[in-house]
Write a protein that binds this DNA or RNA. Structure first.
Lengths: 200, 200
DNA sequence: TAGGACATGTAACCTGTTACATGATTTA
DNA sequence: TAAATCATGTAACAGGTTACATGTCCTA
């Protein structure tokens, strides 16, 4: 549902081929909304069929062509309409918290392994998002640079401020996950120390 | 993928019919892993076909029957194996942060509406989870009470400790979302105050 | 001339959502 | 006898994952 809006957000900055889009995607919006290329190409075709984007076929060498997509008026309207529409929040479905609720059913070693992996997972995400934050500050991210280039000077700060805001939110959430995992490890220490019986 | 393990977690406490399971589900594991009944019934049939659960058909009145499911040895093994298996973390796909990254493309009113809705959404979740935490402390939740009843006394603290741990994690995350949303509203104030031009 | 980047997909499958569909039993 | 609750699903579709599939062009 959101994929097409992520794609529109990128294309609104300027036309891109499916291939370029997919590459830019993975190092910009992809940090917030992951999508593999096998999903991007068909989605672009669907959006084309619905008139949200239009493709211009460009010859590439002798035989090959590439399809360069741009946003149509209808696509632009779809994007701005979506931005005004309340978000549909999906119901919680969280494998990590599901498992956490039943850690007493496994061995202390498995419980600790789960918690350590959770911490490592989110530390990895923090590293990625913080790197992205530095790139935002330095306007090093190519998509952001292009976006800033086509943005009126008085609007640039806002553009950057919201990118920062979004990524800071992700980093904070990830930090929360890490500290939750650490609390879990402490909990393990107290539970195992209090009661030597827990080992299966 | 996780649905069957959520179901097994409940059934390990004792046999339940699909209907009872579905009711208990929504007020226990369902807080962590939502699933509608239209998903639960077919999943139980699939699990039965795979030998993870077995059903006993009980007559109900003159004509009707109900199928009461219990966990088989294979099902128990599947659950404990899953508890030992590293979790597969799925890639980030977060509509709220996606939208947040592009708030400069909409009106200040729409941006504020989005942030307020985000805050309200997570405050609602906090209320639900905190209520559940009180029920956990009072051992009022029927599934937890049954679970405690079949748990050896020295293991009860652990069982409760991990339920608390899981729900506390959810509450903390939700608090993070609320404070992120509030920061967003403050950001709006500074951006709109600094620059009267932002209104479309 | 070989390898890496460019370029674009299809197919099968799983998970989840939404809407629809039906009927029996119990209780007020 | 009507309403609530018990009881169990099916069907169609949307969205996402994984694996597979194919070929061109540029550059060292």
């Amino acid at each position: 549902m959101s994929l097409r809006f992520a794609l529109l957000a990128l294309l609104r900055v300027g036309p891109l081929s499916g291939y370029d889009l997919q590459k830019q995607f993975s190092e910009s919006v992809g940090h917030v909304w992951h999508a593999p290329d096998s999903q991007i190409y068909p989605e672009l075709r669907k959006m084309e069929a619905e008139g949200l984007v239009a493709a211009e076929e460009q010859p590439r060498g002798e035989r090959a062509t590439r399809r360069v997509y741009h946003v149509t008026d209808a696509g632009d309207r779809a994007f701005t309409d979506w931005m005004r529409t309340p978000l549909a929040y999906s119901r919680v479905r969280d494998p990590a918290h599901l498992r956490a609720a039943y850690l007493e059913t496994t061995t202390p070693a498995a419980a600790r392994a789960f918690l350590s992996a959770h911490i490592a997972q989110w530390q990895g995400e923090i590293a990625r998002w913080e790197a992205e934050l530095s790139r935002i500050d330095a306007v090093e991210n190519p998509m952001l640079a292009r976006r800033i280039a086509v943005t009126a000077p008085q609007d640039r700060d806002r553009t950057i401020a919201f990118k920062r805001f979004a990524y800071e939110g992700l980093v904070e959430r990830a930090r929360g996950e890490v500290s939750w995992g650490r609390r879990g490890l402490h909990l393990m220490d107290t539970l195992v120390a209090d009661d030597g019986s827990w080992a299966r």
